[in-house]
Each structure stands twice: as C-alpha cells, then as structure tokens.
C-alpha cells in the first residue's frame, strides 16, 4: 500500500497540487462571499422594519436560513447546477460557477447565524447605555455592539471556514476540479480506490489542521487583548 501511495504521488503529484489549488481557491471565494452575504442576511434577520405586525425583511431572511439549513447541501448544488443555466441561458455558465454560487449561498446562511448569535449575545444593557447617551442605532452598533460581538464571532467563524473547506469536496459531483475531483480522475487511471483517497485525505487534514491551529492562536491573542 505504501509503495502504491509513493508511486501514485510520484506520477500524479502535479494533479494533486492543482486540485489543492482549486480547493483553496473555491474555499477562499466561498469564505469571502459567504461572509459578506452572511453579514447582510444577519442584518436583515435583525432588522426592525415593521409593516403592520410583520417584519418582512426578518421573515425573508429567516426563511432563507431555514431552507438552506434544512435541505442537504448536495441537493442545493444540484438545484443551482440546473437552475442557473436555465435562468441565464445567454451566459453559458460553466458548471463550476454554478456550484460555487450554491456553496456561497449555503455558507452565507450558516455565517449569518454565527454573526447573529454573536451580536445578540451582547448584553442588552450595552445597547441601552449607548442609546441613553444619545447614540443612534447605527452608532451603537458600530461603536459598542460590534466591537464586542466580533470577539464572539471570529472564533466561530474560523470553525465555519474549516467546515467550508471540507464542503467544497461536494463540488466534485460536478467535476469542479478540486481535490475530490482529482481523486476521481487519478483513481480511475490507476485502478486503485484507496491509495489516492489516503493522499487526498492527508492533504485535507493538513489544510484544516493548519487553519484550526491558526484560529486557536488568534483566539488566544484576542483573549489576551480583551484585558
């Protein structure tokens, strides 16, 4: 088995490297889009805009989050894989883009919950104190609530990023070119199911382990600076 692993690596390492590159690229895009979108959704989810007794923005965001969290990610990938080209036939969208969009929309829902929990975890008294001084809602958010919430949000967000990296593997269903796609290709060529899997697994592990260690380090420094 070890021999096979070495042989596969010797011959196909550029492919694995390419797959790793694609995984990291996908992850970076998803993290970025997911965070920005997630922040917006969290804001909608907490908006106070009221029409009669309903908070429309609130409801829309809540439904979005529930649908995303309540359906399998693979289903969502299929959905956008078929839906987007149908909606935008003139754009000739490559499958990888459709899948990336699906992954971004998925991570946005989870990130929005992390952000919402972080913000709502701040004692209501903080908001009241700021408002009693005459700060408006936005100033209260920017000066008082967010700076405190960020300390709750960032570590949880780091863990979310680790999840996202692993989730990109689902994109291999549509041959997005990331690590699992490379696995499928290589195992097909060399007729070995297990050895390439071990290689890919180790690569994932190295990436996620490094990232979670970085998150931990960051967390510790934050705790130290909290004074």
């Amino acid at each position: 088995m070890i021999d096979n692993i070495v042989r596969v690596l010797e011959k196909y390492w550029p492919l694995f490297l390419e797959g790793l590159g694609m995984t990291l690229l996908l992850s970076a895009i998803i993290v970025l889009c997911g965070t920005i979108l997630g922040f917006l959704i969290a804001l909608l989810r907490m908006s106070r805009l009221k029409i009669f007794h309903i908070k429309p923005l609130n409801v829309v965001a809540a439904i979005y989050v529930e649908v995303i969290r309540g359906t399998p990610m693979l289903l969502q990938l299929y959905f956008f894989y078929f839906l987007l080209p149908e909606m935008l036939p003139f754009m000739d969208l490559p499958p990888t883009i459709c899948v990336t969009v699906a992954l971004c929309l998925n991570s946005a829902a989870y990130v929005s919950e992390v952000i919402r929990a972080g913000i709502q975890g701040i004692d209501k008294g903080q908001t009241e104190a700021a408002r009693s001084l005459g700060l408006n809602q936005r100033q209260t958010m920017m000066k008082v609530v967010l700076p405190q919430a960020i300390k709750n949000i960032l570590p949880a967000l780091g863990n979310e990023f680790v999840m996202m990296i692993k989730d990109t593997s689902l994109a291999s269903t549509f041959f997005a070119g990331e690590l699992m796609t490379v696995y499928k290709t290589v195992s097909g060529i060399v007729y070995l199911p297990i050895e390439p899997l071990i290689i890919v697994g180790v690569v994932y592990l190295v990436v996620t382990f490094t990232l979670s260690k970085l998150v931990q380090l960051f967390e510790r420094r934050m705790a130290a600076s909290a004074a």
Partner: peptide, 18 residues
C-alpha cells in the same frame, strides 16, 4: 437621540463599555 443627549441615565447593572 438629540433629547437623550440631555438626559443622563445610570443603570442597575452599570453597563459600562468593556
């Protein structure tokens, strides 16, 4: 907000900004 600037408030649980 303008009027609150002229009304100071002190709370039971202090609510200082940590």
């Amino acid at each position: 907000n303008l009027h609150r600037q002229k009304m100071g408030m002190v709370f039971q649980h202090f609510n200082v900004f940590p």
